[in-house]
Amino acid sequence: ITIHVNGVTYHFDNPEEAEKFAQKMAKTYQLKMEIHNGEFHME
């Protein structure tokens, strides 16, 4: 699972971890999250 946050790329093997991380980042930084081709993009 690949997550892009403001141009920084994070890779996770565990989908649950990826989702937790994505939600935490979105909440902490008030980010808008989109999913493209199974990759999370946040800005």
Rank of each mutant, 00 (worst) to 15 (best):
M42N: 02
T2M: 07
Q23D: 13
M33D: 03
N14I: 12
D13M: 08
E39V: 08
T9W: 05
N37L: 07
F21E: 01
H4Y: 11
K24L: 14
P15K: 09
M42C: 06
A22I: 14
H41M: 05
G38Q: 02
E43N: 11
V5E: 01
F12S: 00
G7V: 14
H41W: 14
K20D: 11
V8Q: 09
P15I: 12
F21H: 01
A26G: 08
E39C: 14
T28P: 02
E16C: 14
M25N: 02
K24Y: 15
K24D: 13
G7S: 07
Y29Q: 09
P15D: 06
T28L: 15
V8S: 10
E19H: 13
F40W: 15
K32A: 12
H4C: 11
H11Y: 10
G7N: 08
A18Y: 02
N37T: 04
N37C: 15
H11I: 07
M42P: 04
F40M: 13
K27I: 14
F12K: 00
Y29T: 08
E19V: 13
H4D: 02
E34Q: 06
E16W: 10
I35M: 08
F21L: 01
E17Y: 04
E39M: 06
G38H: 06
A18P: 00
N14T: 10
N6T: 07
L31E: 12
M42T: 03
I35A: 04
M33P: 02
L31H: 08
I3N: 00
H4I: 07
E16F: 10
T2V: 09
M33K: 00
F12Y: 02
V5F: 11
V5G: 01
I35N: 04
K20W: 07
P15T: 10
N37A: 05
F12P: 00
H41S: 05
V5M: 07
H4S: 02
D13S: 10
K32S: 13
E34C: 15
A26D: 13
H41N: 02
K20H: 09
G7R: 05
E39K: 04
A18T: 01
D13Y: 12
I1C: 05
I3F: 06
F40G: 03
K24F: 15
N37I: 09
H4R: 06
E34P: 01
E19S: 08
D13W: 10
Y10Q: 01
N14A: 06
M25K: 00
G7H: 08
G38E: 04
F21A: 01
A22C: 15
K27Y: 12
V8C: 15
E16P: 03
I3C: 05
E16H: 10
K27F: 11
Y29D: 15
V8A: 08
K32D: 12
A18K: 02
V5K: 00
H11L: 07
L31G: 07
K32G: 09
H36V: 13
N14K: 09
E19P: 00
H11A: 06
K32L: 14
N37K: 05
Y10L: 04
K24I: 13
N14F: 07
N37R: 03
H36F: 11
P15S: 09
Q23T: 11
I35T: 04
H41C: 14
I1M: 06
E34I: 14
L31M: 07
H41P: 02
Q23H: 07
E16K: 10
E19W: 15
F12N: 00
M33R: 00
P15V: 12
M25W: 07
F21G: 00
K24H: 15
G38L: 04
Q23N: 09
A26S: 09
Q30E: 12
N6P: 01
M42K: 03
F12D: 00
H11R: 07
N14Y: 06
E16D: 12
M25I: 07
E16M: 10
T9I: 11
M33E: 04
P15H: 11
P15Y: 13
H36T: 07
I35V: 08
V5Q: 01
I3G: 02
N14L: 09
T2I: 12
Q23F: 05
M25Q: 02
V8P: 00
V8I: 08
Y10S: 00
E39L: 03
Q23S: 09
Q23M: 10
H4E: 03
K24W: 15
L31W: 03
E19T: 11
E17Q: 07
L31V: 12
D13R: 06
E39I: 09
A26P: 01
Y10I: 05
A18F: 07
E17F: 05
G7I: 15
E17G: 04
E39N: 05
Y29L: 06
M25G: 00
V5W: 11
K20E: 11
